[in-house]
Design a binder for these strands. Structure first.
Lengths: 117, 117
DNA sequence: GCACTATATCACTATATAGTTATATTAGCA
DNA sequence: TGCTAATATAACTATATAGTGATATAGTGC
């Protein structure tokens, strides 16, 4: 699949469907609740009960968010008896958040400059 | 600001406000319309009339999305007479989309494997 | 089988926002 | 000044979804 921005060469326009698929994934990260869940999984896999304790979210709400993150490939899971352990599927979420946080740092620096001038 | 996933060392938990600020930015990229607009800016700055032609979106709709992208720092603008030229603020959107597209490639490869087996 | 626990799903309400139409603002020009 | 064009904003409708409470499903032990 072509990257949205491509390399130096302008890549072909993406179809409406491709744009939708990509947007779905960004939107999955566009909820503080889901970022909180992903953040709680940084330390390693957790079952749902542990996530409830870690995050304070309701069980049904948490479960629904986990299904979404699973469907879009941001988390994997492993069933052990009656429990389900969720974990980050890979490092991509970390990389994505690093870029976003870098943007925020730049933003803060700019604001500071405005005050200073 | 701390990155959501941090380095090897687990970073401090993010405050609700920080999570919200990061989520806002992911959500901004979580709409196909806005991705389409950003994609249309890959080739260089465009004014609103040009963007209308390139994307086929309504003027008011387009303007509203541009204000959002501007407010969150994904685009910059330059006014020239009665026109406003928008451009990508930096390369971050490209980097973010590359990661997402990479995920999709892996997803497709996995699907193909399932069929093959 | 029954009871208990963990997780997932359903049904519902409330809120956010994408798209649209109409209007306001602003710049250039006669 | 008035006229036109480009962009932004306001008001509205329709849709999507976050959160919640109730219920369903599945595993474990009695």
């Amino acid at each position: 699949m072509e990257s949205l921005l491509g390399g130096a060469v302008a890549s072909k326009p993406l179809s409406a469907h491709q744009l939708q698929v990509i947007a779905d994934r960004f939107r999955a990260l566009g909820e503080p609740t889901r970022l909180h869940i992903l953040s709680a999984l940084r330390g390693g896999e957790q079952n749902v009960t542990q996530l409830i304790e870690l995050t304070g979210f309701g069980q049904a709400n948490l479960s629904k968010h986990l299904q979404l993150l699973l469907r879009l490939g941001f988390v994997d899971r492993r069933k052990e008896g009656v429990s389900t352990f969720y974990r980050l599927a890979d490092q991509d979420v970390l990389r994505l958040c690093e870029i976003m946080c870098g943007r925020l740092e730049k933003e803060v620096a700019r604001q500071r400059k405005l005050f200073a001038s």
